[in-house]
Structures are given as structure tokens and as C-alpha cells.
Amino acid sequence: MKALLIFAFTVALSFAQESELYVLGVHPHGIVIFDGTRHEIAGQIQTRGRAPKELVPSPDGKFVYTTTDGRAKLEVVNLETRSIDRVLEITPPGYRLTIYGLVLNGKGDRLYVHVKPVRELIDRYVVDPPQIWSVDVATGKTQKVAEVPQGVAALALTKDERKLIAWGRDLYYIDVAQNRITDTFPLMNQPSPTAGALNTLALFIQFERSGIFSIPYYTRDPITAKDLMGLVNLDVANGKVDVVELGSPIPLYSAVVSPDRKHAYAVMNQLLAIDLEKKRITQITDLERTRYVANISRDGKRLFVSGAAPFIHVYDTATLQLIKTIELPGDPSVTSFRALPAR
């Protein structure tokens, strides 16, 4: 018993001393804690539902909120006890919810979720408009914030917490006090006929190192009819958007911006290093497998590439050389690979 206590204490201590931890969901029902300093798996937590998707850490780094079971379940993961604290029951009776978009406020007591509610009547489905709810983390009580157009994939919250940003076919800015969309940044619905629609898919969420939520876009330029790609960079703190055009398309799923905001790294079958100031691709290397997401170390020197295929590959950001391969117990579920806040 004593030995066990000492062991538990040691584990807890070593856990507390870790300063650079990451979480990602894996099949069939787990969350892997990755040590970004030692480049090894620091722990695993079994979730109640299958295939954890989005992950949002609490500001104190003690909890992670995640969606499981086909984005229908909202679980509270306790990183200290390495277990599920509870499931936030937010689905009203007679409904089915699918959750795309999850963000926590600065205090960590209020979650915003983008839900797609479906009323399951006895002989038919009735789809309610997609909407954003705020969830009281302590009680699980929900309140509708605003309805949004179909197609929202991710949520962000400005630093002053007055605006939610919903990333869908366009970027929608929702005033939390006014309960409505007050502004839209056009992506697919360009107002000018000489601007090509920016096709983005914001399912890959890891912006905490830089505060820049960066998603690759593809477009066909209406003047030249040429296909182009680039990055839509959203500064989460103030909601400002920077569209960085990069040239001919290379298939990419996602991008991550370095902590100094000078570089971005994008992945699919290749890893691209992008100089954001010069707006150019500086290096390209073939990846070991197709990958969905990458996160970046706090010092910006290491890239942790994962999602799709049961590995984390550690790359050197300066050389794009593979440093280490870490096997995962299961396939990473799309979409989050999040850095935990420093403790």
C-alpha cells in the first residue's frame, strides 16, 4: 500500500513538473498525453465514449473537455486523476446533437459549443438551425447564444470574450451580449466577382502556441482561372484575418503557426515550411504517412506531426528532418492535437 502511494506520488510529481504536454484523442476510446520535451507518451486516459474529437484544455491545465461517440457526448477529462470526471449532459430529451466547435472562456467556467440539433420524432427527423450554446461547466446548464448558418466547423473566442468567431463557409463574428452575428468575414461568399471563393475546412484545431488559427485555403482565381492556395490566418485574440497567398496548390489538411508568428508549417502528404513575412514556401519534405495535424513546441524548434496513422513524428523546424517516431496505441481521431497550458 505504501509502495503504491509512493508510486502515485512520484507519478503525480513528475506529471506536475512537466511543462510541455500535449493531448490528442485516439481510437477506440482514449486520450494520449504526449510529453513534448522527452518525446514520449506520458499517459493515457480512457474516455467513456469512442474516438475523442475536439479537445479543449482548461486554463489551469487540469481538465480537458472533449467530444466523443460521434461528436454526441461532451466529457470532462481529469488530467490529474487520469479519468473521466463526468459527462456534461447537454442533449435535450428527444434530441440528438452533433458538436462541431468547442471553446472555453478565460476563467474556465463557461464552454461555448456549436451544436447541430436534430429532433427525433417517432417517424421523422426535424433539423433545427445550427446554433451556439453556452454551457455552465459546473452545472451543465445550457443557454442559446445565437443561430449560425450550416457549415460551422470550429469556434474561437476573442480575448475580451465579447465575440465568438465561428469558422464555417465564412467567418461569423457573434456578439455574445447581443446574441447575434454582427460581422462576417467572407471566405466562400466573396462580394467581388474578381475574388475567388476561399475554400477552407476548419476541422484541425491547434492555435494555442501562436494565437493564430491557421487553415489552408484553395481558390480558383476568377481573372486568370488559375488554382491557388494559401493560408487564412485568424488572430484569435482580436478576430483579425490575414489571407496569405502562397501559389500553386499542394494538397494540405492543416497548418500551425510558430510562437513568434513568423513561420507556419502545413501538412498532408508533405510537410511545408512557410515564411509568413515573405509569404513563401521555404522548404518541402515528404512525410512518413499522410498526416492531418501538427503542433509546435513552445520554443518553436520542434514540430509534432500526427493525426491519421498511429504515430507522432517529431521534426526539427529548421531542417525539417525527422527526429523521432513515437507509436500511438490507436489511430488519432480527427481533429485536435492541443498543447496543455503551462502549470
Partner: peptide
């Protein structure tokens, strides 16, 4: 007309796959 809600309920992600158009 019922098919719209049926498809949105059955395949909630179809609007993402069809993001190049306003599917609804």
C-alpha cells in the same frame, strides 16, 4: 421535402464535404 432534414440528420457532416456550395 422531408429528405433535406433526413440527410442533414443522417449525415451531419455533409455540409462540410459540400462546403464549396450552399448545400441547404
Amino acid at each position: 421535402l422531408n429528405l433535406k432534414d433526413f440527410l442533414l440528420a443522417m449525415f451531419p457532416s455533409l455540409v462540410y464535404q459540400h462546403r464549396f456550395e450552399d448545400w441547404p
